[in-house]
Amino acid sequence: MVVLISLILSIFPFVLIIFPLIRKYSVSEFIPQDESSLFSDLERRWDSAIEGLRSTELERMVGNLHDQDYDWLKNIHIYEAALVLKALDLSEIEQNQLIDEVRNEVFRSVLITQDKLYLKAKE
């Protein structure tokens, strides 16, 4: 019994090791996106800008930000998002759609629908 278990324990890892080396890969097999590609980088910067906008709204909601600081921070994050969109070379319609989506999502996520600022922005 001991010999059998020892044999299984010795062979099992080598089966795991050898299998990927001898199996055939199909041409259509999924190639993962490179984490260092320009698109991945832009995606991260985009997410960071959106997160920055959400965070700015939240800071304002909880009263940590002065109006002046709020405006400055919001512009910085929108500028960063715009830079990403520019780098992506999207059409103007696509850019506008995304910007609208960002505005709606950021405002919705921090629940400031009653905020005057939001009403102003809607007008």
């Binding site: 190639i31 590609s37 992506l88 696509e94 995304l98 989506e101 999502e105």
Partner: peptide
Amino acid sequence: RSKKIKLPIANNLFVSRS
């Protein structure tokens, strides 16, 4: 799991660095 605003993959960008 909040709604994520996904970027469309632009035609001029390579997916893989390699």
